[in-house]
Design a protein around this nucleic acid. Sequence first.
DNA 1: GAATTCAGCGTACAGGTGTTAGCTGATCTG
DNA 2: CAGATCAGCTAACACCTGTACGCTGAATTC
Lengths: 209, 209
Amino acid sequence: MAKSSSLGVRAQQKEKTRRALINAAMNQLSAEIGFSSLSLREVAREAGIAPTSFYRHFRNMDELGLTLVDECGLTLRQLLRQARQRIDKGGSIIRVSIETFMQFVADNTAIFRLLLQERTGRSREFRKAVERELEHFKAELIEYLRDEQGFSAPLADLQSDAIVKIVFSAGADCFDVDDTQRAQIAEQTIQQVRLVARGAEATRRAKVE
Amino acid sequence: MAKSSSLGVRAQQKEKTRRALINAAMNQLSAEIGFSSLSLREVAREAGIAPTSFYRHFRNMDELGLTLVDECGLTLRQLLRQARQRIDKGGSIIRVSIETFMQFVADNTAIFRLLLQERTGRSREFRKAVERELEHFKAELIEYLRDEQGFSAPLADLQSDAIVKIVFSAGADCFDVDDTQRAQIAEQTIQQVRLVARGAEATRRAKVE
DNA sequence: GAATTCAGCGTACAGGTGTTAGCTGATCTG
DNA sequence: CAGATCAGCTAACACCTGTACGCTGAATTC
């Protein structure tokens, strides 16, 4: 109510077709092609508007793309929050986090692929945007390792950077596999993260003694 | 001599323009755009031949792309061999390998970016080709860990998979940085790989006892 | 030396691309 | 209710794309 009346009928409709454009782009992405070879005209067509109307919402395709990256980051952070809640109810933080992450990759393959793809992609602006999202992920992990596990700041940083790299790379391994294989990858990733954790633990001990 | 006479003038010239096409593609790749938005016409133009002559060498752009991936894999394996030689003359295997790797990334940014990009790219065939190259890298590492370091097969596998993930991810971090920053990333990567190695060591001890 | 092969070329086509300019009609504003 | 706003439209532009067809002339083969 508040939203519909405060926004007005016009603004509401505009937001709607804006979403339609975003969804159209995500659909086309999931299909087969990378973002760089995505066509303004086809996106507009799938969104059900004239090609020229696209410009009422985004200056160009890149602006749409950056919006998509942000959307993905948002979803990812929601996912993290959900994982946290499950951990509070007990369970291994590593296992729960990674299984949640893998589920996310399975459910949102298109958008996750965009993230990984543009991380190494053509536009510096895109790469920076993705790197920013990865930093969010890493920062929350650092906080946990420092505050809950008592690691020193540098060791927490080193550790979580490694973990983020391993986990996101494992996400890329999930593109062409079925559910059971994905479970295997998850299991392997869990063991690898534990390897890192154990190594950090050993390092901490070595420094204390 | 043997080559020029056994190949014949015609075949020799053909090979030459084939290389020209490959080099042209690599140049354009390094510039700004991903492989998917690479144009047959522009590649042909840079190679100095008519667009239609392209088909005398490759069935389509994808075939050229797969050739590029193979080329990159070859260069990467040469790099590994060089690193081995340096290790035989003494020095930390981790440090030497990673510094060599980082140097490779700095020298061959275009082709390395292609590898990382197509790893998550649009074509399944491409992804498989890249994955094959990563497997080479991993396999050599497994061999070393098993034979030289005496790790059990499963632990060597787990460990080297994690290391490959970390190192290649770190390679992606090098795209937008200068030499000193790259050295820092190399240093961080070395520490992270040591973290994994230490964790694997601890795991081995735990299982033996 | 005649016949064959074939890398490279020019022309041409059908279809896609991003973007400009200007119109329409519903919504919002005073 | 008159006037301004503005999302979406159509038409049109200049340009780029992959690829089919058939020719040419030098290298190769017999």
